[in-house]
Nucleic acid binder design. Structure first.
Lengths: 346, 346
DNA sequence: ATATATTATAAACGCGTGTTCATGGGGGTG
DNA sequence: CACCCCCATGAACACGCGTTTATAATATAT
């Protein structure tokens, strides 16, 4: 069914059909109704490709989820619950605005070609990037091409005033400080950290805040208590097991995301540790199961849904209005005290 | 940058460029290299819209996730960890085959218009449906239009021999039986169930198997021990709280998915019950956190990743080969015994 | 009643690419 | 040397729709 068929059936020309579909003013009510009736009757929908080719928007944005490199087997990747929230939130917000979402996963963090490709092929008229490493050039590349791009978790200083770019962040530095101050109030002096990927802005911020906050309280940082978790469960599990076998242990452990906190708790439990009696644990993100764990995980809640809704709406609005101005918004975190922390034993 | 530009820069005609891009045989090595060099140099990619319009495939499939009705607020929906696995698996498999994935969420279970729309607008050349209710007509509609469709969790009898249709299921009936037999072996006689959405094939199968298995062991079914959870955490939480306040309790509870099992455990814990000492719990699916819970959840593992990979690959293969034959595959489940079940006290 | 302004509509062009058809040239055979 | 065949390639058309331009029909003013 093409617009020509509709035109024939309605007894008008194809131009008139097009005018009706695109809400042109100069078409009398009578003609409009006649055409609409035929369109309705045959369930006609304009071909998106032809429409886009003729200059209309295709109402599609791309969501690019950058996952860590090939080391992780595909069958395991879906276990990372974190990114799922992003996908759902983007799809929700986009659908609400009448947009479609093309979801793409990028495993090898070096190979951003698929992003360029989607833009070059004109598949999408905007994109959202999650999991970006600070030192990648993809953001500059895309925005320079004039394509609207939204990035979650990106250094505002680097992004500053770059046109076609939108950024949302959670206030990681502050959130981390809240968590650590709480531990310090509970009397903890030996506080360890499981770091995320330091190449990401959030990973770096959380680590920086850890170092700075401890310093401010004149607590010394024990290098052995710094575990490189890279936001990964498996890596964390192994690192914690190694830590347990070493000579000294921290009394509290701050994990840079919940996945790692859970993995750490699992490792501790297996070695006969009780949480929080033997060691306090704090996570970051507040993923859905955090509150359902036993004990429930104390963590720093990141308003992922709000952040992603905001960036999606801003992106689409920018596309439609042709706005190119840089925009950046930071979202406050909420410290959720639950059951995985305890006053340190004297 | 259009193919015409490439042609000019390479000193050939547009037709030749097209022939190079589409791997036509009759173009000499020398000419091909010349053209490829220019393409490479300018990072040229054919416009997908124009390509599709001219009869080529657009290499895009749609993934339609049907969620339950409006009752659930958007901000809470992303908490359902189950569907996330689907999205990741479909995207992985499709990307591997060079396909793009359009993800769409449908909340109002009546409104399938977006699926028709995506097909009618020629946005996608195939679709995958998750969370479908048995009594919906959408599957017949789409397949009748000649569009290839893959459905996860659908009654094979209804689907039988319908062309353009592919179905994958887990063996829910058998999986449920395994779980219940295990409980019965442990001496349980009063076994409750938290049912899923009975309108779905899996929800129905699991419930049927529950009734049948108990019947086979001559155990009576107490209507009060049948909780309608509808695959939802909140609903389950409330139902379990109600159950606890009633006069009699089962000694074991079989939840038709892990989300509900976790919600039930949370409710029991809050009321001072210990698991598995006071009540045994079994889940279904084996979602990522099931093994990380404390106690770790005994559950029936559904090979989601394998199922979804299979259906995606079959769909794409069918699209490319123009195959229309009905195809159905059932995947075996694995019963994972962990720590949430115990021998019944004498 | 005629001239002019206004409106409804049709015809034609362009979007970027795939593909068919026609053409021209080169090599081989008689 | 003449003929034929094959191969490389360019020109032209098609895909379905939006939009501009031209034209026909109608309404308004004189």
């Amino acid at each position: 069914m093409r617009s020509e068929d509709i035109a024939r059936l309605a007894g008008v020309s194809r131009s008139t059909v097009s005018r009706v579909i695109n809400n042109y003013p100069n078409v009398p009510e009578k003609t409009r109704d006649k055409v609409l009736k035929v369109i309705k009757q045959y369930n006609y929908e304009p071909n998106t490709w032809a429409r886009a080719l003729a200059g209309k928007s295709n109402n599609t944005i791309g969501l690019f989820v950058i996952s860590i490199s090939k080391t992780q087997a595909p069958s395991k990747i879906y276990k990372s619950t974190y990114y799922s929230s992003f996908i759902n939130a983007v799809v929700d917000a986009a659908n609400t605005s009448g947009y479609y979402v093309l979801v793409h996963t990028i495993y090898c963090s070096k190979d951003y070609s698929k992003i360029n490709q989607a833009f070059n092929q004109k598949r999408i008229c905007g994109g959202i990037l999650v999991g970006n490493e600070k030192n990648s050039d993809i953001i500059k590349e895309i925005t320079k091409m004039g394509c609207p791009l939204g990035v979650v978790d990106y250094d505002p200083d680097e992004a500053m005033n770059r046109s076609n770019l939108i950024v949302v962040n959670s206030m990681d530095y502050d959130g981390t400080a809240k968590a650590l101050n709480y531990l310090i109030e509970l009397g903890h002096r030996d506080i360890g950290i499981i770091t995320g990927r330091l190449g990401t802005y959030s990973g770096q911020q959380r680590f920086e805040s850890y170092k700075q906050t401890l310093k401010e309280h004149k607590l010394k940082i024990n290098p052995e208590f710094i575990l490189k978790g890279e936001f990964l469960k498996d890596k964390t599990y192994n690192e914690v097991k190694k830590l347990i076998k070493s000579k000294s242990l921290p009394t509290a452990l701050f994990a840079c995301n919940d996945d790692m906190a859970l993995a750490a708790m699992e490792a501790f439990r297996e070695e006969g540790f009780n949480i929080p009696e033997d060691i306090s644990v704090i996570g970051f993100d507040d993923i859905p199961v955090a509150s359902q764990m036993n004990p429930a995980l104390t963590t720093v809640r990141v308003p992922v849904y709000d952040m992603v809704t905001e960036i999606t709406e801003m992106l689409i609005d920018g596309i439609e209005k042709g706005r190119k101005k840089f925009y950046c918004k930071n979202f406050d975190t909420v410290f959720k005290i639950r059951d995985t922390c305890m006053k340190v034993k004297e």
